[in-house]
Amino acid sequence: MVEFSGVGLRYGPDAEVLSDVSFNLQPGSFYFLTGASGAGKTSLLKMLYLAQRPSRGIVRLFGEDLVSMPRHRLPGFRRRIGVVFQDFRLIPHLSARDNIALPLRIAGVSEEDLSGPVGEMLSWIGLGDRAHAFPPTLSGGEQQRVAIARAVIARPQLLVADEPTGNVDPDMAMRLLGLFEALNRLGTTVVVATHDIHLISRIENAQMMRLEKGRLSDPTGALRYPPNRS
């Protein structure tokens, strides 16, 4: 699904923020990415959701080399990835419903075909009655739910979430985690960056990816050479 090999990333002339990062993400697996602030979690996630190319190393996604991939092919890959941003990045002049429907519209799904899934998703995240509300009028938690709904609406093959439950109450956090788990059971590979220990403990088969000062801690080699899943 995702292969990083000897990946390094630097911004401009500064020192590398990620060094020699190597791992293999298995299809249908669930990963938690942890690490102290500044460890490079967001930079790693950026490369996962194709917002950043590495400075060195190999990155393969869905079996293709992304480092040398021409730019015009990236949108097709991005449509297979769902992203939950730490700062939500909702489009402020679009309603909650339009924000959630955006990935489907970009993919060319007709209004007729998307209205059902979007309505269901709105109900599921508890915002059925606020479908036409605009993000600035939503609370932080509501915005986060919309952002998550937008990330999962197109049933992505890879879901990348940066602190997805940081602004919601524990109940909603569990519900959202349950959504990630359900997607994971349907075959979506999930990578969640979080500091929340309680969240991590709720997913039984999740694997940990820990970044320390830009390097991935993998003492057993399980991330680099994962056992074959049956």
Binding site: V83, I91, L102, P103, R150
Partner: peptide, 16 residues
């Protein structure tokens, strides 16, 4: 820019 970046990240093409 923020909207464009968002659109890119969810798979919008330059043409769109």
């Amino acid at each position: 820019y923020a909207t464009i970046e968002m659109l890119h990240l969810i798979g919008a093409t330059d043409q769109q």
